[in-house]
Amino acid sequence: MLKIFGAPSRYIQGPGALDAVGQYAALFGRRAALVIDSYVHGVLGPKIQALCAAHGVSLAPLIVEGDLTPEVIDGLRAQTRPADIEMVIAVGGGKSLDAGKAVAKSSHCHLITVPTVASNDAPTSKNYVLYDAHHNLLAVEHMLFNPTIVLVDTAVIATAPLHFFRAGLGDAVSKKFEAEQCQRNGGKNMYDGTPLLTAQLIADGCLRTLLADGAEAVAVAGTGKPTPAFERVVEAMILMSGLGFESGGLSIAHALTRGLPKISGVATALHGLQVAVGLLVQLDLESRNDSMLADLTQWYAQVGLPTTLRDLGAAATPSDAELTLAADLSLKARHAANFDRTLDVATLADALRRHA
């Protein structure tokens, strides 16, 4: 099997990065779809429109709300046809970015992602998630290539609520351990290839950065005033984490996000918070002989990450039926095969019970 590494063409980060959106958009044409939710459009829409207009780029706003379903995608595609767009600019959280990816894929055009929160590593990834009308995960789809430009304005990111920032920490901290399991057990990454050493080294660096600077970054999240530590952690949560998972591969921590929402009270927990608990379950199953599980649990306490299902919102000790269903759905995820041994439903359910 070939080894494959993928990435965005350009990643730009720093306070004021948003000011460059018109400059980069103009590289790809004169007509862009602006995929954005109504709240972010109200806050940043006029500024983005003015920045693009200054470089001769007109915008066709596509307002997205709620889950990304096939029907929503069809509606967005229908709106883009009269605009004859040459690029997509997706601004906001994960769902707006995912919608932008779906539109860019169907329009065969460049994509610029502009995250307004650092709750996950979606800005650099080609993946996007589809849901059905009942809010159930339907499929994970892929653009042919990663976003062309990723613009991360840390002054904007630093104004987002701390809750979202914590979720980004939880999503990112797992990547070293998941990439290790994928590489060690012959798994495929998101490009259906074998991971290169480069991806593992990036995932290792991601973990080191989070452990060194995470607590200091959490202290300023939400203040609107990014510090050097905040800058480093945002880079780890978006760029290093994104490259680490997409080119390095995933394992149990992310597989568990398929099943955890079936436990009463957990479905509304942010993706990264579910991953954080999923990583502790994975490390438990690894039966490690080092201090990593204890060290991470201590770091979780410092940055405010959940360590149990109850922390995720489970109202009481989950029933055996809920744990069994969660384990069964998780083991059906492709990533679950990237592990040192084949797990059965009972073993995974028992591990979840230990973290109830």
Rank of each mutant, 00 (worst) to 15 (best):
L2T: 08
A7H: 14
S9L: 10
P15S: 14
A17W: 06
D19Y: 01
V21L: 08
Q23P: 01
A25R: 00
F28L: 11
R31S: 12
A32G: 12
A33L: 00
V35L: 03
V40R: 06
L44H: 11
L44R: 09
P46G: 01
I48D: 04
L51K: 07
A54I: 12
A54M: 08
A54E: 15
H55S: 14
A60R: 01
I63E: 03
D67I: 04
T69H: 11
L76C: 02
Q79M: 13
R81L: 13
D84Q: 11
E86H: 01
E86R: 08
M87K: 05
I89P: 04
V91M: 04
G93L: 06
K95A: 09
D98H: 07
A99I: 14
A99E: 11
G100D: 12
K101M: 07
A102L: 12
A102F: 09
K105M: 13
K105A: 15
S106N: 10
S107D: 06
H110W: 09
H110Y: 10
T113M: 02
V117D: 00
S119W: 04
N120R: 00
D121H: 05
P123K: 02
N127P: 06
Y128T: 12
L130T: 13
Y131K: 04
A133G: 14
L137S: 05
L144H: 10
P147N: 08
T148P: 01
T148S: 08
I149Y: 04
I149A: 04
V152L: 10
D153Q: 06
A155K: 12
I157F: 12
L162A: 12
R166P: 06
A167T: 13
A167I: 14
G170H: 10
G170C: 09
S174E: 13
K175C: 06
F177E: 06
Q183P: 01
K188A: 13
N189T: 14
T194P: 00
L196N: 07
A199N: 09
I202T: 07
I202V: 15
D204W: 05
G205S: 03
R208M: 08
L210F: 05
L210I: 15
L211D: 05
D213E: 15
E216D: 14
A217Q: 12
V220Y: 02
A221E: 09
A221P: 15
A221W: 02
T223C: 03
T227I: 07
I238A: 06
M240F: 14
G242Y: 03
G244M: 03
G248Y: 00
G249Q: 10
A253W: 02
A255R: 09
L256T: 13
R258N: 09
L260N: 01
S264D: 11
V266G: 00
V266R: 01
T268K: 11
A269R: 01
L273Q: 13
L273V: 10
Q274Y: 00
V275D: 02
V275E: 07
V277T: 09
G278C: 12
G278S: 10
L280N: 12
Q282A: 05
R288W: 02
N289M: 13
D290P: 05
S291M: 08
A294N: 15
A294R: 06
L296R: 07
T297W: 01
Y300W: 10
L305W: 10
L309H: 03
S330E: 04
L331W: 03
H335G: 03
A336R: 05
A337L: 07
F339G: 08
F339P: 13
R341V: 15
T347K: 00
T347M: 05
L348N: 10
D350I: 10
R353N: 13
R354G: 03
H355M: 01
A356F: 05
